[in-house]
Design a protein around this nucleic acid. Structure first.
Ligand SMILES: [Mn+2]
Ligand SMILES: [Mn+2]
Ligand SMILES: [Mn+2]
Ligand SMILES: [Mn+2]
Lengths: 247, 247
DNA sequence: TATAAGTTTTAGACGCGGCTAAATCCGGTA
DNA sequence: TACCGGATTTAGCCGCGTCTAAAACTTATA
């Protein structure tokens, strides 16, 4: 059995690996989990003993196949829980992460199955993040790009937002930005400030600080041109459960 | 903050105090939690330091006001969860206890509130156990009696069944015995074997071993004589969510 | 009332997951 | 190529929750 702490390390390493590709530095994990470097060193040694990570001293750490599977399992729990809390217990977008972050370690496989069933096997969570499938096969690579990488004139659909900052999520809900929202980049100002125009509401512009623009991930709007199903515009109460993501 | 282990100790002490009245012995807690006596001793010392129990060395331990409140809080979580899992996630009677026993320590107050709300503030869990109110005032004393204490001819309503033995719960579900079931004691045989007749089905008798009869708690059937609302007789699939309990 | 049996506590250990301080390594710069 | 600064690991500590073995206490019995 793995402790919830070990699960958190594996989840973190997975997330950091997704971000940057290669091996993950001790200090990166330490920062992510808010612990000290020696703590990380001793933990990754333990994970290495259990065959969950591969490690080269002074270099960095990578998940093994088995370690990745555990990470995906925990991620599946997390994202199913977020979806469930949003849809069945009236949680808002910004509240779910913290609750799911604890519960993900404590639900049974039975619970996971039943939640997936009543949600009808969702593939995306409320923040647009893909939910690993029940068989825990690695999802294909993320093809979305940060909003901050785009230029004036680009037509985009919001694909994912970071779920780790509650403050920021409230801000986005307020601004009416959620997975599925169609935007045009109106302007990119110094210091990375991005101004976007809402495709569904030509009236309205919204300026976003660089750090926010960096955490919003988008894909091009051009391809699947039909404005599709439930275009529940916005409304004060940032709900808005997303559409498909696949490119 | 209290650890989940501390919460379990407080919950155990509460349960044992309910059973027997007075101070609770180290060995009783040890047996209940399946740990050794020295482990219990060191834990209750810690709980004493935190003002959650009172203790007299070599004598026993009792909950303080504060300790009782914590126990009731955990019990509320447990029983709300059992109710929720039964009603909204299609768990059966016999499956809920284990899941709730873990989750009770890991849900937030917000989660508790929302679950209570969608369940419309239930007062009894699927096993007939009273759910402590949100303000955590101590519930009045249990006036039910074990089925095993009764004699042939007694007319009874099942009030509570023990939730800790999954095996036994499956057995009872199978037999069609649940909170709310009306029974007449047909016979008490040697070794405490009790045979009951179903009030709603004069045809059918059921013999129950002493240990099972002891864990079924009942109250007299005579007083509120109207056969009342949803008398969903039985059916193979032990669901049957109970009625009121108050005497 | 002395003693034996059973319970409880004390003593000492261990793995976990954290920390700080000190030693070591690595990569870049002079 | 020698050195320096930063990252990493080593060393050693702590509190938690558990254990076993041994000592101390309580209670029942002779
Ligand atoms: Mn799972
Ligand atoms: Mn999410
Ligand atoms: Mn609570
Ligand atoms: Mn119960």
């Amino acid at each position: 059995m793995l402790s919830d702490v070990m699960e958190d390390y594996l989840k973190s390493i997975y997330a950091l690996q997704q971000e940057d590709g290669g091996p993950v530095a001790t200090s990166a994990i330490a920062e992510y989990l808010e612990v000290t470097s020696p703590t990380v060193t001793s933990m990754v040694e333990k994970l290495e003993d259990r065959g969950l990570v591969e490690r080269e001293k002074y270099k960095g750490v990578e998940l093994t196949q088995e370690g990745e599977t555990v990470a995906l399992e925990v991620l599946r729990h997390h994202r199913l829980l977020e979806s469930y809390l949003t849809e069945h217990l009236d949680y808002s977008w910004s509240e779910v992460h913290e609750e799911a972050d604890t519960l993900e370690h404590h639900i049974s496989e039975e619970f996971e199955r039943r939640v997936a069933e009543v949600l009808d096997d969702p593939t995306v969570d409320p923040h647009g993040d893909p939910i690993p499938s029940a068989d825990l096969t690695p999802p294909e690579d993320d093809t979305t790009t940060p909003l901050s990488d785009h230029d004036a004139g680009d037509l985009l659909v919001v694909s994912r937002v970071s779920d780790r900052d509650e403050e920021e999520l409230r801000y986005l809900a307020d601004a009416g930005i959620a997975p599925g929202t169609r935007l045009e980049v109106a302007d990119v100002a110094p210091f990375g400030m991005v101004t976007v125009r809402f495709a569904d509401d030509g009236e309205r512009d919204q300026s976003l600080p660089e750090n926010v623009a960096r955490s919003i991930r988008v894909r091009p709007a051009d391809d699947d041109s039909d404005p599709d199903s439930d275009s529940e515009s916005d409304g004060g109460d940032g709900e808005g459960n997303s559409e498909e993501i696949e490119a």
